[in-house]
């Protein structure tokens, strides 16, 4: 499915939308760029699914990072660094 509003302006193809979402335009793009993305998302279920996947990716990355070192390991590291550096 390609979301496209005929007439005044184009809200871009699904390929363009997915590429912009992955590049982070929704967070860092200009006002018009973000608006066009939001309009496309509002009328395009597959691109909304793509955006949901990116959000799941983000949550998974945060969980992964937290799993790399336990709070006890971080506390031990902090103690050691304070002894060595100060």
């Amino acid at each position: 499915m390609e979301a496209r509003l005929t007439g005044l302006f184009s809200v871009g193809s699904c390929r363009e939308t997915a590429a912009r979402l992955a590049a982070g335009v929704l967070e860092t793009g200009g006002f018009l760029e973000r608006l066009l993305l939001r309009i496309h998302l509002a009328i395009c279920p597959p691109c909304r699914a793509f955006a949901r996947q990116l959000a799941a990716l983000s949550a998974a990355a945060r969980a992964w990072s937290a799993s790399l070192a336990s709070p006890a390991r971080l506390a031990a590291l902090e103690k050691k660094l304070l002894e060595r550096l100060t």
């Binding site: 193809s13 997915a18 699914a49």
Partner: peptide, 18 residues
């Protein structure tokens, strides 16, 4: 990434899951 779309920019293989 490109292989997920038809030449016109439509989804060829729409996203699935989770």
């Amino acid at each position: 990434f490109e292989s997920r779309f038809h030449t016109g920019g439509h989804w060829a293989k729409p996203p699935r899951g989770p």
